Amino acid sequence: MDPFVVLVLCLSCLLLLSIWRQSSGRGKLPPGPTPLPVIGNILQIDIKDVSKSLTNLSKIYGPVFTLYFGLERMVVLHGYEVVKEALIDLGEEFSGRGHFPLAERANRGFGIVFSNGKRWKEIRRFSLMTLRNFGMGKRSIEDRVQEEARCLVEELRKTKASPCDPTFILGCAPCNVICSIIFQKRFDYKDQQFLNLMEKLNENIRIVSTPWIQICNNFPTIIDYFPGTHNKLLKNLAFMESDILEKVKEHQESMDINNPRDFIDCFLIKMEKEKQNQQSEFTIENLVITAADLLGAGTETTSTTLRYALLLLLKHPEVTAKVQEEIERVIGRNRSPCMQDRGHMPYTDAVVHEVQRYIDLIPTSLPHAVTCDVKFRNYLIPKGTTILTSLTSVLHDNKEFPNPEMFDPRHFLDEGGNFKKSNYFMPFSAGKRICVGEGLARMELFLFLTFILQNFNLKSLIDPKDLDTTPVVNGFASVPPFYQLCFIPV
């Protein structure tokens, strides 16, 4: 058959498939802009700032609406009420993970971030239990974070109060905490193996944040037939998995079943207990991918939040002064901060919360999916439909947070200066898919920041009023603009 005829037939089939998918069930789905064949609503979305586009569309179609990214149908949730109703009140029905062709290629359905069903539930339950087990290797997770915080302070001392970009050092600290939990080992910041790991993690975040990856996920045929950065992403992930597998083999040879040292040991012990169960989800494949998931999810998000926190503290020296006064009063100079201190430091706690609220790190979270046909607000959402959640619409709700575009710790303080919780605080998402490392991340943010401010004054290279804190939105995360500062020993 003539190649031209084959091409026309293929394009015609794709067009018909697109029209059929977009028209099927439209009477039951939430409203939304009319999609174009094949490309859907992509032309109506700013790929570099999806969150802003969703906010604009919500003003037209309401808090629940339908979009098509290519052939992929998505239902968008915008605003606290619908997000709570879906992710919390109907948590089980909305607990699936959205379709990610690239991740599915890399992870093969294993791990904790992109798995679904029984596998996801069992691996998540085990990971939560293990991360909360403060007795691994007779050292609590808090001990590990405190140790890394001391190392971080010593690295900052080496800058000798000269101007520096904190990106690298602030990236090393949370990565080392995860390494300590998974591998029972922290690395020197100049260790070549550690630097290679950091390089792969950072490069992957840069790649994932590009519009090209959005295109690959919406048109998965590209993955096999086109060159691009997605190939580098898959190569980096394969490198990390190979490295983790080597460490798993080392653990198998040296493990003491009665004295687990780290996450890998705990997983291997669980595998041993379930070795007679042919349906067990505790396999080497799941261990390797879960460890890679924890490394990827637990490094860049925390380091970016820390980097943004220091920029905001530079911009608002009056806030920094209040935090340091609270540190001096509650902790002093002669001991290290600990998590028990947080309950006695409402202002510092409010500042950490406000940093996370203000920066809105992951504006749309990772997409969910419905696990069955769901009736939601008089609409029928078919099983498997991807759910896109606007966390921006919750964290920047102007009824809950007056002047949401302003950095103001009073958003989390009552009139008496006591810490005030808010149900709208969802930087880790909400419901059954809430970030498994939430507790660890909150511990790291509090301890790293208090250790830094206990030991250093922060000095800006320019007038604080002239510092730009506008986030650089890159399609996946909101990151701070480049800046330098000086760490002046107190």
Rank of each mutant, 00 (worst) to 15 (best):
F187A: 07
A238T: 03
L11N: 05
I264M: 11
K118H: 09
D188R: 10
T159S: 11
D165M: 02
F456R: 03
P317T: 10
C216A: 11
S162G: 14
H99E: 09
S180V: 06
P337G: 03
A103L: 14
E328I: 13
Y61G: 01
Y347E: 01
G416T: 14
L54G: 02
L268V: 05
M426K: 05
T301K: 15
L366G: 03
S390P: 06
D349S: 10
A309P: 00
E81S: 10
M255R: 06
L440P: 04
R433A: 03
P427N: 03
K249Y: 12
T167R: 12
P227R: 08
E147Y: 09
V82N: 05
E81Q: 15
A430D: 07
D262M: 01
H78V: 13
C216R: 06
M426I: 15
L458V: 12
R139I: 11
F407C: 00
V351L: 09
I60R: 10
I289H: 08
T299E: 03
H251N: 05
L29R: 06
L131H: 03
Q324K: 12
G62C: 01
I327E: 01
M426N: 03
N259E: 12
S280D: 08
T305H: 00
K121M: 11
S390N: 07
K420H: 15
H353V: 03
E85V: 05
R144L: 14
I452L: 11
S242C: 10
W120S: 07
N56I: 08
C435P: 03
N258P: 06
I223H: 06
D293F: 03
E400I: 06
E72M: 04
Q454L: 00
L413A: 02
L128F: 12
K185D: 07
C338E: 12
H396M: 13
I452V: 15
V208F: 10
T371D: 07
L268D: 00
V490C: 14
H230N: 05
L245G: 09
N133L: 08
I60V: 14
R144C: 10
A430E: 10
L361N: 03
N133P: 10
P346E: 04
L9W: 15
L312F: 05
E400W: 03
M271D: 00
D349V: 09
